[in-house]
Structures are given as C-alpha cells and as structure tokens.
C-alpha cells in the first residue's frame, strides 16, 4: 500500500516519476507521433483514456484475478479499452485517426499502461489508482506536448497549424522527420537529468 497523500500521488506522475523523462517508458509512441502538436495531443489523450479506465477496472476486480494469469487478464482489459478508443477516434476524428494509423491500436503494448496495472492498480484502492492513473497520464501528455511543440515549431514554424515564426525563419525540416525525434528526445533527457542533479545538489 502506498503511504503518500492524494496530492503527492497525483504530482509524482508529472515530474518525479514522469513516465517518459524519468522512467523511459512508452518511448515508441512518444517518438513516432510527435511531429505535429495535434497528433501528439490526440495520442496523449487516447492513452490517458485507456490508462484511466484500465486502472479503474483492474483495481476494482483485483481480488478476483488469480495471480498466475494476471498479465494476460490485464492485457485483455487494456485491449478492450484500446478497441473502444480506436473505434471512437475513427468515427469522430477520422482525419487524426488516419494520421496516427496503426499507432492507436499499438497503445495496447504501451508499457506505461501495463506497468501501472502491475505496479500500482493491482495493490491499491480504486480511488488511489484513479489519482495515480490521472497523474501518470498528465505526465505523459505533458511530455508529448513538450516534444511535439519543439518539433513542430522548429520543423515547420507553426504551432497547432498556426504560423508562429516570422518570415525570416527557415524551417528545419529534419525536426519533423524521424532523426529529429531521436535527437530532440535525447537532448531533452539530458536536460531533465541535469535539472534533477541540480535540485538534488541543492537539498
């Protein structure tokens, strides 16, 4: 059982245990869809939906799942919500759904979601699991937003499709291509670790 207060349970997902910057989980979608802010945001929200609902279900039926088959059960629960998310995206936001393509079904193998079920929801109450899932999702969305903002602004000079850079700016096309994703995330990880060290040293 976790001994943190409810507030701390939420906040830890934003920085201390941020799934992307601190735990290096879910890197594949993080790299793949962050060429445009709108795609990053859609991916973040779809993943949050799946994570929050899977956590709610797993934490409420944790007593009935035999521990030998728990991973398989979690995967079926997660796959159910991913199917719902996939179908809803295709119905209501066909354009975004087309852009993200097979990356939406791939949420099912996102290690953040399975990781939270195994590490948290299977041992904590429904309320706490909800707050934890909310915090982790916010951390994930935050990371996707940071990465996609940098890539879209530098890569094409726009933010959510709006022109933000002046006409003097020559876009760095490489930023929205695959190499830009690796380079940006690598440098961001370095910066995150640097900030972490600085704050530790001050304490």
């Amino acid at each position: 059982m976790s001994t943190r207060s409810i507030g701390q349970e939420f906040v830890k997902g934003l920085w201390d245990e941020n799934p992307v910057f601190r735990q290096l989980l879910g890197l594949c979608p993080t790299l793949a869809v962050t060429g445009w802010v709108i795609n990053g945001l859609a991916m973040g929200l779809a993943t949050s939906f799946v994570l929050i609902f899977s956590s709610l279900v797993v934490s409420s039926i944790k007593k009935f799942i035999p521990s030998q088959v728990r991973i398989a059960s979690y995967i079926v629960i997660i796959a159910t919500f991913v199917t719902i998310a996939d179908r809803c995206m295709a119905a209501f936001f066909p354009l975004i759904s087309k852009n993200l393509g097979p990356y939406i079904p791939l949420i099912v193998v996102n290690c953040i979601i399975l990781g939270r079920q195994e590490a948290f929801s299977s041992r904590n109450s429904v309320g706490r699991s909800f707050i934890d899932a909310l915090g982790m999702s916010s951390g994930f969305v935050l990371a996707l937003l940071i990465l996609s903002s940098i890539r879209e602004v530098l890569g094409v000079g726009t933010f959510l499709g709006l022109q933000v850079m002046g006409t003097w700016f020559k876009p760095w096309i490489i930023m929205i291509l695959p190499p830009g994703a690796f380079l940006t995330l690598g440098i961001l990880l370095g910066i995150a670790l640097h900030i972490e060290r600085k704050t530790k040293a001050r304490k």
Binding site: L177, P178, G180, G186, L189, G190, L193
Partner: peptide, 20 residues
C-alpha cells in the same frame, strides 16, 4: 547528464539520418 539513454538516442538519431 547525457550518459546512458540520452547519448544512445542521439546516436540513434544520427543513424536514422544515415538510413534516410
């Protein structure tokens, strides 16, 4: 601060550049 995952990702970026 770049040791470990940071530098590995930057190397992957340069490899992706080459594969382009």
């Amino acid at each position: 601060p770049l040791k470990g995952a940071g530098i590995a990702l930057i190397v992957a970026g340069i490899m992706a550049l080459a594969f382009m």
